[in-house]
Structures are given as structure tokens and as C-alpha cells.
């Protein structure tokens, strides 16, 4: 069941370079994503998935078109307000996790709260709660480098959801994981992370996890070439 429009992309296009090297990575893409929806964007390498995801999440300014999140045209905001938008509305799970090995696991999780200006100790307490959510409470004081790939993925998820964002961005969430671990992670995301008030956008190559998607958008050469229901509706 989906409730309300979370993201509305209209006529999104992106060019890179200039002159003879000018290339168009995304071509006139329009779609909507709803709350409580897990939406996959799939396609071959170079099809423009990551560029599209970056424009949707307030990271890369589109050359044309607009992105509305909860009705707000995010690219009409100035740089500082876009940064605030990302901090308050979007949670990121990067392909390589990008955890700080010189900080403890719980400090990594608490980073978005600390960036929001929340008290250090309160942030760590909140971070500890989310480590419990992802089942890593006993790893709180270890550096991420001491954790397995699956555990690091869960730490990255805890960091992404600790500030209760409306939009979650997953960039190739299973790229560094074996099949079983990848499925467990997506099962966890589907059951524990996807809420009524949240929309999850996932870029992936991995067709083994299509079963967890509500909807799958297919891209090729920068264009949306189709949309189909995911396995979650099977």
C-alpha cells in the first residue's frame, strides 16, 4: 500500500562536459515515488542510474527539470538549504558505506544527529538505540574496520535512519555482500526500515533482490524505458 507522493521528478535531464565531449547522462526522466514504497532503479552500467539518484537526493543539480520532495522544489533552494534538506530529509547508504574507521561504530551512526547540532552524548544514546534496531548493540564501541561486510552495511543503514529521514537512498546495497547476506539485509530493510512515512530509492544491478521491491524502474542510455512491479507484490 502506498500513501501520498514523496518524490516527483519532472523532465529531469543532465549533461556533462562541453563541446565535443558533451554527453547527456539523463534524458527527460519523469516519475513519482510514494511513501511506503521501495522503488528500484535498475539498468546497465552507464545508463544514468546514479546520476538520476543524485539529482533526486539533492546532490547533483539537474541541467533541466525539477524534483519535488513532499511538494518542495528542492533545486529552487540555495546551497545551504539543500544541505539542510539532505541532512533532515534524506538518509544515504553508500555503496562502500564510507564509515569512519577512526570513530567507533556508535559515533558513526550518530553523525547525522551531531551534524544537526544535537548534543554529543544525546546523539550517541540515540545512535545506540539504532544499533540495537540493526542488531549490533554489542559492537557499539568497536571501529567499523573490525566488523564484517554485512555488519558494516547495517551500521551504514543505522546511520542513514538515525535521523528519521523521509527518503532513504541505497546505492548498490548488495554490491559488496554475498547473496545470503544481501538478501538478509534487504529483508531487514523491507520489514524494519520501510515505514508508512518513508520512501526508499535503491539503485542496483543485483536481480536477486528484486523480490523486495515494490516497483522497478528500468533505465537505458539515460532514459526510463519501463516500469514494472517488484517481487514485494508477488
Amino acid at each position: 500500500m502506498t500513501v501520498g507522493v514523496a518524490i516527483q521528478a519532472v523532465g529531469l535531464s543532465k549533461w556533462f562536459g562541453s563541446g565535443e565531449t558533451r554527453t547527456q547522462a539523463v534524458k527527460d526522466v519523469s516519475f513519482e515515488a510514494a511513501f511506503h514504497e521501495m522503488l528500484y532503479i535498475v539498468g546497465p552500467s552507464g545508463s544514468g542510474k546514479t546520476t538520476l539518484l543524485s539529482m533526486l537526493s539533492g546532490i547533483l543539480r539537474p541541467s533541466a527539470g525539477s524534483v519535488r520532495v513532499e511538494g518542495v522544489d528542492i533545486w529552487a533552494l540555495d546551497e545551504n538549504r539543500i544541505a539542510d534538506f539532505r541532512l533532515h530529509k534524506v538518509g544515504f547508504v553508500f555503496q562502500d558505506y564510507h564509515l569512519f574507521n577512526k570513530l567507533t561504530t556508535v559515533e558513526n551512526v550518530a553523525i547525522p544527529l551531531i551534524l544537526r547540532g544535537q548534543d554529543w552524548n544525546d546523539s550517541l544514546k540515540e545512535g545506540q538505540k539504532y544499533l540495537e534496531v540493526v542488531g549490533l548493540a554489542n559492537r557499539a564501541n568497536l571501529p567499523p574496520s573490525k566488523l564484517s561486510g554485512g555488519e558494516q552495511q547495517r551500521v551504514a543503514i543505522a546511520r542513514a535512519i538515525v535521523s528519521a529521514p523521509d527518503i532513504l537512498i541505497f546505492d548498490e546495497p548488495t554490491a559488496s555482500l554475498d547473496g545470503d547476506t544481501g538478501r538478509k539485509i534487504l529483508e531487514f530493510v523491507r520489514t524494519k526500515v520501510l515505514t508508512e512515512q518513508r520512501c526508499i530509492l535503491t539503485v542496483t544491478h543485483d536481480d536477486r533482490i528484486y523480490e523486495y521491491a515494490d516497483r522497478i524502474l528500468k533505465m537505458e542510455d539515460g532514459r526510463l524505458i519501463g516500469s514494472e512491479k517488484g517481487g514485494a507484490h508477488a
Binding site: L87, P112, L115
Partner: peptide, 8 residues
């Protein structure tokens, strides 16, 4: 990554 998360 910090920038992406929202650090200015």
C-alpha cells in the same frame, strides 16, 4: 560522504 549527508 559528510557533505552528502548534509555537512556544509
Amino acid at each position: 560522504a559528510l557533505k552528502a549527508i548534509g555537512a556544509k
